[in-house]
Amino acid sequence: MATIADRPAPSTTTGAKRPKPRRSKAGSLAERRPSFVVYGILIAFILGSAFPFYWSFLVASHDDGEFTSDAPLLPGGKFFVNAGRVLDTIPFWKALGNSILVSGTVTLSVVVLSTLAGFAFAKLRFKGRGPLMVFVVATLAVPTQLGVIPLYMAMAEYGWSGTLGAVIIPNLVTAFGVFWMRQYIADAVPDELIEAARMDGCSMIRTFWHVCLPAVRPAAAMLGIFTFMMSWNDFLWPLIVLNADNPTMQVALEKLQSGYYVDNSLVLAGTTMATVPILIVFLVLGRQIVAGIMQGAVKG
């Protein structure tokens, strides 16, 4: 980890824009087009990745009874009927709205607070900077999920259990976010620019706002995407602290499944409906998500 972090991180976008393969022997070393076997394996892998999504939609578009004998392989026409039953069974729209509200608030807060802290750690000089940063990184390894019992007791004590605040507040800023932004700001914002702004009489916060923020937009956007997905998928804590009347999407899905008789077409219609928004986001932002993971890997 350390050996890679010490090296200046190559921008991952260069991967896509690499010059065309040279004809020389040295060029043919790594740039030769792979054989159809490679494509075949990758296609098989991706089909395997996509299959559960297809299966979910397949079951959701048939009656539950149709799967007892020969399972159909093509989607049927019952999806909207099943989707309607989902809307009758769980407060789907409320759950969707809650999830958007929770993840949106958490994302905004994590991005702003992490960027602010990352700016301080990367560019400002203050006593204890080194040890405090080590502390931040060390907290990445602390399994805070194991502290849910006192957290629940505290939320119950203050009457916050069952409210969205109980899900939002513990996630307002993350160690990962601070670390991520620090790494990026250290490279992306030239010291001279900050000094120039200070010379012009900018206060710290104005320097942050006018010099640092514009330069870190790409990293902040990636942090936003990851935070949103992490928050959207959070399950243990929302399951503990929220109830069936005011759930997030994940909690509502769990309630859909936990009956005595399980109607698969109903349940998988619910999972399909919960998955489609995320898939749309992925199709739009997938390129950034891929770049973000690879960039984070090299830096971290």
Partner: peptide
């Protein structure tokens, strides 16, 4: 993007789907 597809899916939804499979 293709190999990353499973990562973005909701864990709860996917666990339910796998339970069915």
């Amino acid at each position: 993007m293709g190999v990353l597809l499973p990562y973005v899916a909701s864990l709860v939804a996917l666990t339910i789907i796998f339970g069915d499979l």
